[in-house]
Amino acid sequence: MMKLNICIDIDGTITDAYYWIHLANKYFNKHIKEEDVTSYEMHEVFNIEKEEYMKFYNNYIREIHETATLKEDVKPILDKLSETNNLYFVTARDKRVEDITINFLKDNNIPYNDIFLLGKHYKVDQAIELDCDIFIEDNYNNAIQLSKAGFNVILIDTYYNRKKLNDKITRVTNWDEIYNIIINIYLEKVS
């Protein structure tokens, strides 16, 4: 049986997209709600300088990622997909939170073949190296880069990625939709 190589982002993809807002609201003394997060650039959302947001992120990186919450419909879908496919987590998280990331996956019994903490948002090279068949992402710019490099992308809908898509990107709202798309891609490859 042929296996697909499925690359999966972590934050906003298998985790809730907005789990960190309460920490940033407290730090910046703001009252940002999920629907206010209409940009992936958090300094724009909080109306502050980028350096100020990066200072917050760097000071609280571990606490931010330790509070991540798994989306409720992710685990059963990943369990099913892992039976017949290769699952690779490809994240912009950096090595400072490698232990937190691995423990999060382990504590939630998330199956995977390997994990890549890139420390940057550019993921095309890693997708090429993994011979990726489909990439599951929430970052609009990543989705565009990956799609322009020829990859099929599933973009999980968020308030911050609602922009025009090209024909290599499919927007979804839940993991059941992701599963159905992947099954269809598999069927196309074997027929």
Rank of each mutant, 00 (worst) to 15 (best):
N5Y: 08
I6L: 08
I6N: 01
I8F: 05
D9Q: 08
I10D: 05
D11Q: 12
G12M: 09
T15M: 05
W20L: 07
N25F: 12
K26R: 14
Y27N: 06
F28N: 04
K30A: 10
V45I: 11
I48H: 07
E49T: 09
E51D: 14
Y53C: 08
K55F: 11
N59V: 05
Y60I: 00
H65I: 00
E66T: 07
V74C: 06
P76I: 01
S82L: 00
E83F: 00
N86D: 08
L87K: 01
V90R: 04
T91Q: 07
V97G: 04
E98T: 09
D99L: 07
D99W: 00
L105E: 02
K106Y: 11
K106M: 07
K106P: 00
P111H: 05
Y112H: 14
I115V: 15
L117E: 09
L118G: 10
G119I: 13
K120C: 12
H121K: 15
H121G: 15
H121S: 15
L130F: 14
D131Q: 14
E137P: 12
N139Y: 11
Y140W: 08
N141I: 12
L146N: 03
L146C: 11
S147E: 08
A149L: 09
A149I: 06
N152P: 04
I154Q: 04
L155F: 10
I156T: 04
Y159T: 10
K164C: 00
N166P: 03
K168V: 02
I169L: 03
R171A: 11
N174Y: 03
W175M: 11
D176G: 07
I178H: 01
I185E: 13
I185Y: 14
I185M: 12
I185T: 09
V190Y: 05
V190C: 11
